[in-house]
Design a protein around this nucleic acid. Structure first.
Lengths: 195, 195
DNA sequence: CGCGACGTTGATTTGCCTCAACGATTGTGG
DNA sequence: CCACAATCGTTGAGGCAAATCAACGTCGCG
């Protein structure tokens, strides 16, 4: 078993040796270069990815072709197309590597096998999902009640390490503002610091 | 077991008779009048509520005292303060009945007992959470990429029944716009239809 | 070296908020 | 059951934050 994932699992549940080796046998190790696609609409492979090292982005294209980044994934994050994964609907999500990355891949079929043989992992994924849900709820609240500057500062707090790893227009896209606005926000903040 | 909840459960999993009667023994039946509070900050009782009949709203008050409705709950919805429920942090959420409602209440302690004795319900709640997560993600996308008119139309599609059950300013609050704006949006839409 | 992608800056426009006033509807006590 | 208050919905005027449009500088790369 990959030690990073094992450590992550043991933060939430206490699996037996057998549980761990079962999980280990069901995931596959993978290294990808920057700009590789792990998921594209039309590609029907249903996988969840655990980021051991590197950085990914998950985004949708809307009906006008505009891109909307919904999530970044760095070390210790799981990322997948939840909707396609659980609802058997065609995927509309792109998952793309921003940096050269090493990943563990868990297929839909293997996840079902995992749950059947070691139901303790239902709990693991339920807890992760709860945390993700709480985080997304917070993001809704801030998108509704906070202005762009506040949201940018919040982003910097939540993802201090990402801030220098992804380009400006990706962050602007995630925050739902234009790259020009983000640029002006950064300038205003810098001026405030030096005055 | 309440037939409405039993039907809801059986949409997602196949529990045994014993599972169902265990669940039934762990929830309590409750009727409340409109404007009753089911959860308030400071009230440390940790419960999840299943709406058998009626309508609730869940909202936060921010540091400036402004209210932000994060969720409506009607028939067949579960509602709770996820954050307090799972993280043992003090609750900052209000859950309030909009209509006279009948509810089933599941306490934190009983939910843990439920999971211990009938782990199949881990799966039930994991699936519900996944669906909720997908819904909240969609809401983020629309709050970031769509204007107020589009968000209102989306709301009407997602909650056609709620639209006439809750007052205008609640819907505006949920959408993150002012009641005045929502009023103007409705007028503009009506004019478009008649022209 | 030259091309393309990205970041920066300014000018203008736009969507929505805030404030204020007034009409409609609901709820309540006499 | 009516009268009045309180709450909610509607409309207009003015202001602000952020988008859009356009231009230019900079950096990395074939």
């Amino acid at each position: 078993m990959n030690p990073i994932l094992e450590k992550h699992i043991k933060k939430y549940i206490q699996p037996s040796e057998e549980d761990i080796s079962l999980f280990s046998s069901l995931v596959t190790f993978q290294t990808v270069t920057a700009k590789s696609f792990l998921l594209e609409p039309g590609n029907s492979s249903k996988n969840e990815f655990f980021v051991v090292k590197g950085c990914l982005k998950a985004y949708y294209l809307d009906s006008k072709g505009a891109r909307h980044i919904i999530q970044f994934a760095i070390e210790n994050w799981w990322v997948s197309d939840f909707e396609a994964f659980y609802k058997n609907t065609p995927s509309t999500l792109y998952i793309e590597a921003i940096e050269d990355s090493t990943l563990l891949t868990l297929s839909y079929e293997n996840k079902e096998i995992l749950f059947l043989k070691s139901p303790i992992f239902e709990r693991y994924f339920r807890i992760l999902l709860t945390n993700a849900f709480i985080g997304v709820r917070k993001r809704i609240l801030s998108s509704l009640q906070k202005d762009a500057t506040e949201r940018y500062l919040e982003f910097c707090n939540v993802y201090p390490s990402i801030e220098h790893r992804v380009q400006n227009n990706h962050i602007a896209n995630y925050l739902g503002i234009s790259p020009e606005s983000l640029c002006r926000i950064k300038r205003a903040l810098k001026n405030n610091l030096t005055n």
